[in-house]
Design a protein around this nucleic acid. Structure first.
Lengths: 211, 211
DNA sequence: GGATTAAACTTGCCATTGTCAAGATGAAAT
DNA sequence: ATTTCATCTTGACAATGGCAAGTTTAATCC
């Protein structure tokens, strides 16, 4: 069954289509994405994808699902590379993994968070997305010593951290940071960590600033 | 020339097309957007838009340009409603205006920040986008007493504030905040202001936290 | 005022797309 | 060996974006 030979039955067409779909998405963006282009790339007929994914939305949903899994893996990979078990260092690592993924697969990242409302998304997609969210919730729970689901202030921390890293990632892949222009990887990472610390720090009532 | 009568020449077809395009975009999202649907809504032939906007991308660029103008207007409107000239209050107001716009025109907001790379965008679009950015830069300049263009720390403040409010807005219109679920307007606004304060506050070297 | 020029808009056409229905193929089960 | 069934193909259809050519109106020029 795993033979990739040129038989009538492909073997693992589903995986091949997903791989091709990601390539097409990365090359053309969502706008130029086409089912037929994906099928052509794999060398099957234009209707082959329908059998595995139903329609175009089905394929994109499946792709987004796989995206969320790799997204979570990217955050965990950075954490694994972080020897310290310090909660703050763990969140830093997750943030860097978040940015890694967004920069490495910007089109897929955009797809994952595009979510047009009239979309009863698949359960698997919802699960994969929620798993990513829970990773962040867990990180904040370790930091605060209490579950954000039991503590409103901790949930606010989740919101703040998530908004910060997500906004930074979005703006970065939008090219909207041209005027600012940080150079290579290390600078980006350092900048993210600096502003991520702000999101983690609960602000005092007054604004503490002296040049 | 300003007659909106049913003559062969529409009168101000360009504006009518933009208005219709925004409606179609809001109803169907970018995916379902169609030049022909826009033309049909206005009551002109399917090729009429081409004369004013070139192709589909031209229309969307023009729409994004107008979006950025209204985006800036939304921030300025909130500021105008804020009697105090306090820099922090001004930034708060801008942030609320940012969110107002994103929630009021989510599809347009997404379009404005979609920016697929192989896009030599129009000069007007670039200008309108930059004007919005400069609004934020100005807000931070008032807060810090120095131009972010002359001061790296102030530019970091710009990045932090922008990332925070943009990420919050994006996540909110993505419906990704379902698990958190803040209720009506005031709660959203209060939450944004709280996390916005974090972005403004430069974090100390250590993380200041006790319960 | 009448002819000319230019702009605004339409009609018709083509290649491409997503989706559907029907058929062809081959692997697995009986 | 026959049946069964998932897998994949072929062919068709309507809708779309873009182009070329034509039509209608407004503005300009003499």
């Amino acid at each position: 069954m795993l033979k990739t030979k040129d038989s009538y039955h492909h073997g693992d067409l589903r995986a091949a289509l997903l791989k091709a779909a990601e390539a097409v998405l990365a090359e053309t963006g969502v706008h130029g994405f086409s089912l037929r282009a994906v099928a052509k790339r794999v060398g099957v007929s234009h209707s082959a994808p329908a059998h595995h994914f139903g329609d175009a939305k089905g394929l994109l949903d499946a792709l987004a699902t796989e995206g969320f899994r790799r997204f979570l893996a990217a955050m965990e990979a950075r954490q694994a590379a972080e020897p310290s078990g310090d909660p703050r260092a763990r969140l830093h690592a997750s943030g860097l993994g978040y940015l890694d993924f967004a920069l490495g697969s910007p089109a897929l990242f955009r797809l994952m968070f595009s979510d047009d409302k009239p979309a009863p998304k698949s359960q698997q997609l919802a699960d994969a997305a929620k798993a990513s969210f829970l990773h962040l919730v867990d990180g904040v729970a370790r930091l605060r010593g209490v579950s954000p689901y039991d503590n409103a202030a901790a949930m606010t921390d989740v919101m703040a951290i998530w908004s910060m890293v997500h906004g930074f990632s979005e703006l970065f892949i939008s090219g909207r940071l041209g005027p600012v222009d940080c150079q290579p990887k290390t600078d980006r990472d350092a900048l993210l960590l600096e502003i991520l610390d702000r999101a983690m720090a609960r602000a005092p009532t007054g604004i503490p600033y002296g040049d």
